[in-house]
């Protein structure tokens, strides 16, 4: 995973609540066997007209937001499907931080496992940052994960909450599996104890195990 430390860039405002992952990346883009190339399908229903041409009013089709690195949205961003293709599509487009009042739980987890930082800030702060974003290239935001602050164009710093373990993993670009495998002996012990205490716990097989 790419480490996330500090990010400065143009922010795009998407003042919509309940942006679901079908809107972020529709199901027809999920028929892939790699992670790459999903940026072209990002926000497809909002970004393109039915004939495939760009919707000129959509923020990511306008300069300088075509190069946005930060997205600001309203409540419940990333609700719906568990598809990790949603953070993959955002990252592939170039967005590695989303700021919103709240997120879908699965999207929130998926993002951090891919070096995409989701930041929860109150609605009024999000609206303030959206006003900054409206100034385009003259008003870049900086995200400093180490200090846990969003720096506004006027220099004001806004603190955000962050789980310490997630922060550590993101700053160092570490994945969870390596972290968990340090607990392999405990997993072994758990399985042994459980097999002894609850031997009836069934396993899956190809043939019906029924008598």
């Amino acid at each position: 995973m790419q480490p996330f430390t500090k990010l400065t860039g143009v922010a795009a405002a998407l003042p919509i609540s309940n942006v679901d992952t079908d809107k972020i990346i529709p199901a027809r883009f999920l028929k892939i066997i790699t992670r790459a190339g999903l940026g072209k399908g990002l926000f497809d229903p909002l970004r393109y007209r039915p004939d495939g041409s760009e919707e000129p009013g959509f923020v990511l089709n306008r300069e300088p937001y075509r190069h946005a690195k930060i997205l600001i949205a309203h409540e419940n961003f990333g609700c719906g499907s568990s598809r990790e293709h949603a953070p993959w599509a955002l990252m592939d487009f170039g967005i590695s931080c989303v700021i919103a009042p709240s997120f879908g739980d699965i999207f929130f987890n998926n993002s951090m496992k891919n070096g995409l930082l989701p930041i929860r800030l109150p609605r009024e702060i999000c609206d303030l940052l959206m006003a900054d974003a409206a100034q385009g290239d003259n008003a870049r935001l900086t995200i400093d994960l180490h200090a846990q602050v969003v720096v506004r164009p006027n220099g004001e710093e806004i603190h955000f909450e962050m789980d310490p373990l997630r922060k550590h993993l993101l700053l160092n670009g570490l994945d969870d599996i390596g972290q968990t495998l340090q607990h392999a002996p405990a997993i072994d012990r758990y399985e042994t104890a459980r097999q002894a205490a609850q031997p009836w716990f069934p396993t899956t097989t190809l043939t019906d195990p029924a008598p």
Partner: peptide, 17 residues
């Protein structure tokens, strides 16, 4: 429900964080 990174995590460790 879990994402693909978590699927890999469960396949490898039979656990979740």
């Amino acid at each position: 429900g879990i994402g693909t990174s978590e699927v890999e995590h469960v396949l490898a460790t039979q656990t979740m964080l």
